[in-house]
Design a protein around this nucleic acid. Structure first.
Lengths: 116, 116
DNA sequence: TAAAGTGGTAACCAACAAGTAACCAACATG
DNA sequence: CATGTTGGTTACTTGTTGGTTACCACTTTA
């Protein structure tokens, strides 16, 4: 969502969408809702995200104060991610959004155009 | 957010982001929260959106059952937009998101890199 | 000696979102 | 006859996102 442009917009919706409005961010936040996890664990939990995209997603969420990144200088290296207070306050909103969708979602898969 | 791909995803967050996660959609929904408005009025309320982008935004929100489009066969033509029930249930969530942002937003404009 | 695990980077690419500017039909008005 | 109003459309350009694949350093294990 052109994150760097909207991050300091006058509009709070543009700002919150700059934080939340990308493919994987809500998923990553939700995955960390009640646990700390390592890079590889988040990657395994989510499954279909690529390492590169997970890296930039985590980096941006850290920049925006949503999560903490803790590096342990061991071998092999260990890096842990967990939500900040600010990040935790986002959880009920994410859950509400998912609930809203579930309540209003009708599977209209027949509308999907699959070109043979 | 690659709307057509995620619209029928298994993940409710991907689905709701397919509806809400673009630059102008939450703004348009919010603009219609307690009134019906014509194309030109929405354009005037929001101000900085282009006609082309407003057209596709409105069309997609109608497709997703968030708003109604009513065409009056007059001259000059009149077209009115208003939220559906489904769209109206989104309002408290949008307000919560904006509130969340306002509560956690610190203006760190000095971090913006403005290349001279 | 070779492989495996960890948390990433770098180079490259396709698809999509959003923006600009010009243009349109159909009349009403001056 | 020219201009304005309304709700758009068309063609074109740019910027961003997400994806793939290969690769890295370092150390332990087989």
């Amino acid at each position: 969502m052109a994150r760097n442009i909207f991050k300091y917009s006058d509009c709070p919706m543009h700002r919150s969408m700059a934080i939340l409005g990308s493919k994987w961010k809500p998923i990553v936040i939700y995955a960390l809702r009640e646990r700390t996890a390592r890079f590889g664990q988040i990657h395994a939990i989510i499954g279909s995200i690529s390492k590169k995209v997970l890296t930039t997603t985590l980096k941006e969420l850290e920049e925006d104060g949503i999560l903490n990144r803790t590096e342990y200088k061991e071998l092999p290296p260990r890096v842990e991610y967990n939500l900040t207070d600010k990040g935790r306050t986002l959880i009920p909103i994410i859950i509400q959004l998912a609930k809203w969708d579930n309540e209003h979602y009708e599977e209209k898969r027949e509308k999907l155009e699959i070109t043979p």
